[in-house]
């Protein structure tokens, strides 16, 4: 399933990187500790987090993350969104807590 299809199915918002949503989603990873993500997330994963500072874009870009999913409708700084556009990373907002966000993905078979 593509990122754009996940967004449509779950009614998420696209905050940045609208043009980079044709990536295939392989799985998911949820964590707020960047080193955990570095160690555990795989290429093509959706990364669910509460972190919103610009370094999440660097992490996602280095790992080849399919898209960053911000939970809880947290406010994402402009600097982060700008960096995401620059580095071709999509940032999505699920508007739901991490638990429900993950459950939604599981229901889609991800």
């Amino acid at each position: 399933m593509k990122v754009s299809e996940v967004v449509e199915q779950l009614g998420w918002k696209v905050l940045a990187g609208e043009s980079y949503m044709e990536t295939q989603v392989n799985g998911g990873y949820a964590a707020d500790l960047l080193s955990c993500v570095m160690a555990g997330a795989e290429t093509g994963d959706l990364w669910i987090t509460l972190q919103t500072h610009s370094n999440i874009v660097a992490v996602a870009s280095l790992l080849g993350i399919a898209a960053i999913v911000i939970a809880e409708g947290a406010n994402v700084p402009e600097a982060t969104l700008g960096k995401a556009e620059q580095q071709e990373v999509a940032i999505l907002s699920s508007g739901a807590p991490v638990y429900e966000t993950v459950a939604g993905l599981v229901a889609l078979g991800i």
Binding site: L33, L34, S35, Q51, I56
Partner: peptide, 15 residues
């Protein structure tokens, strides 16, 4: 609070 300082940096590096 920013998600750094988990104490996993060098562990990741060694991996």
């Amino acid at each position: 609070e920013m998600g750094f300082g988990a104490g996993m940096g060098l562990t990741n590096i060694e991996r």
